[in-house]
């Protein structure tokens, strides 16, 4: 279970990016994080995966703190940016192997998982090529595979559907559901409200660094559409 308690993050010039934000993500849950550009989604996510420090608050995953025990914390998670810059001079398989080595995944398991997911995403025959030769979508798929093969307790995705073709998007959604059935939880940000509506168990809406709504989909939207609720909340001063 991911617990974010009273998280606040201020950038150097005094700009408050995240202001006293709290949320919980239970095991087996898909949690959608919605907000306009610059609302603080990526900052929150980066704090949650331990790549950005913060002034106030607490972030724990199964009671392991991202500040006090970052290594153990990170062993449980996988993170994917919206525009993954990968090691362009490595081949696809070298990159996956690198990730597996870091996470200590055994030889047989990695072979099986890489084979499975590379085949599903149809990039198995490209794994021997340099990442620099990949298209944006292929890089996105490779980064996704590198996240999935870790079988993380928490998968954190920043705009995961950007750059994916419809088939790949469908596959990602299916894999997300499958991972949740196995006990993992997924925390992802998105601009696409339809995706959030179809996929998420819980959602949170962030505006100017503050949470303005959170709960189950039904709790947040009631009998309105998610788009209407979102527009009302972000336009309300």
């Amino acid at each position: 279970m991911l617990v974010v308690k009273n998280l606040s993050k201020t950038y150097n010039k005094g700009k408050v990016a995240v202001d006293n934000l709290s949320l919980e993500i239970n095991d087996g849950e898909i949690f959608g994080f919605i907000g306009h550009n610059g609302a603080g989604k990526t900052t929150t996510i980066k704090c949650c995966v331990g790549i950005l420090d913060f002034e106030e608050g607490e972030i724990t995953l199964d009671n392991i703190s991202v500040v006090e025990n970052p290594i153990e914390y990170k062993k449980q998670i996988a993170y994917l940016t919206d525009n993954p810059d990968l090691y362009e001079q490595l081949t696809g398989i070298q990159f996956l192997n690198f990730i597996c080595d870091i996470y200590g995944i055994s030889k047989d398991v990695r072979l099986e998982r890489i084979n499975k997911y590379a085949h599903i995403f149809e990039i198995d025959s490209y794994l021997g090529d340099m990442i620099s030769s990949y298209s944006h979508g292929m890089k996105q798929k490779l980064a996704l595979i590198s996240a999935i093969i870790r079988k993380p307790k928490l998968l954190v995705l920043d705009e995961p559907f950007v750059g994916l073709d419809p088939k790949a998007s469908f596959l990602v959604k299916e894999i997300m559901k499958e991972m949740c059935k196995e006990g993992s939880s997924i925390f992802f940000s998105t601009h696409v409200l339809e995706v959030a509506e179809k996929l998420c168990d819980h959602i949170a809406i962030i505006k100017n660094g503050k949470l303005v709504a959170k709960g189950t989909l039904e709790e947040v939207k009631g009998d309105k559409s998610l788009e209407d609720v979102f527009m009302e909340l972000v336009n309300h001063e």
Partner: peptide, 10 residues
């Protein structure tokens, strides 16, 4: 585009 995954090193 001709890669066949056979083995990996740990």
């Amino acid at each position: 585009k001709d890669y066949v995954l056979k083995d990996v090193k740990k």
